[in-house]
Write a protein that binds this DNA or RNA. Structure first.
Lengths: 201, 201
DNA sequence: TCCTTTTTGTTATACTGTGAAACAGTATGT
DNA sequence: ACATACTGTTTCACAGTATAACAAAAAGGA
């Protein structure tokens, strides 16, 4: 990584922030596929060519936005998941959905831009990795197929649940979503895994 | 609908089939976003403007392909799900995955073209509707939120499982995927629903 | 403050893809 | 064989991508 903040030109910081903000606001108000570089640079009040001086493609800019925003959620889930044997799963779920509620815009962007297949795959893999690390020790998952299919299932289920919640105008509130999370995402999977791992899948 | 087959000009049938086949083969070999109308018409050995004489957009042609191909899977799942209380869930799962294995190309196209967010939403809704109809009577689901969140969960989980299976070169075989389907998709959800419906979610 | 370096703005350009027009040619069913 | 409907060719205006050259402005060190 970059240990010192690596003194970056303030003009570059301004330009990049303007471009990011412009893309974010555009994704929130129209279809991602219909967004053009020209629109972004106009909204960012910068020259068209300036975009290409910082990014090669539109997807690259999108990735930068998502990577930045998702890093916090991922570490948050990871922290919660690691201590999940001891702590309350309902509370874990509630905290996740409270965080998502706070950063609702970011997650709306995430799901709208899943139109880019690569983005979706990457996010699913990132989340799956976390649950894989967190769940492997406590369950008796010696079979690699079971581990893969399970972590993929938890990851996609959680993301789908979040997407459903946002589409449903963030109802019900986080407290109840915590209960849904516990029973639908975690408990049910744990139950299924124990029946799966006793057979030669 | 169109009760009689509505006598369609054989030239139109040929042209449309050529365009569909061309798009299918193109999606299987390259990124959907990079496919152009010109490429399709060239591969279909037809004139560029002919495309626009039959379809308004590329997405419309894609939708026609998927609607046609998915209709059979949907009715198949629906038939199986309706008699699921009596029949064997493992067999139900096996049959689903055997069918998917037969039509693997179609499903690869489906997941590749989920890049179009609208396509994804529609398919999820279609599958969710089926499970909603099938599951409502047998479980005690009086709460509309529980019904929605559950059918959405089953739908997205099943689609994710299918996508994972295709990405994993259709391993393990359908027999084992039937077991995974039963425990991970159905049993686990049924268990979760009973705990959810006893509380005021 | 001055001077050098880096970034940004302006303008121009080549290229690709979209979507539609007019008109000529060809296949179809009766 | 005929009117009808479909398809092919050519042409066009337009929008968006990606790059280049040169001028203008901002940043940071001496």
């Amino acid at each position: 990584m970059k240990s010192p903040p690596a003194k970056v030109d303030p003009r570059v910081r301004r330009t990049r922030r303007a471009l990011r903000d412009a893309l974010v606001s555009l994704i929130l108000e129209k279809d991602y596929a219909s967004i053009t570089i020209k629109e972004i640079t106009e909204r960012a009040e910068t020259a068209y060519i300036t975009f290409y001086r910082h990014y090669e493609t539109l997807d690259q800019l999108l990735m930068e936005i998502l990577d930045e925003g998702l890093a916090e959620l991922l570490t948050r889930i990871e922290t919660l998941a690691k201590q999940s044997d001891a702590s309350d799963l309902e509370t874990e779920g509630r905290l996740i959905f409270e965080y998502i509620g706070q950063k609702a815009d970011l997650f709306r962007i995430l799901f709208k831009s899943q139109s880019v297949a690569r983005v979706r795959k990457k996010v699913v893999r990132d989340v799956a990795m976390i649950f894989q690390r967190a769940c492997t020790p406590l369950a008796r998952l010696d079979n690699p197929v079971t581990i893969n299919v399970t972590s993929n299932h938890i990851s996609t289920s959680l993301l789908s649940l979040i997407e459903w919640w946002l589409d449903n105008d963030m109802n019900p509130p986080p407290v109840k979503m915590g209960k849904v999370y516990k029973s639908l995402i975690i408990d049910s999977t744990v139950g299924a895994v124990s029946s799966l791992s006793t057979m030669s899948v």
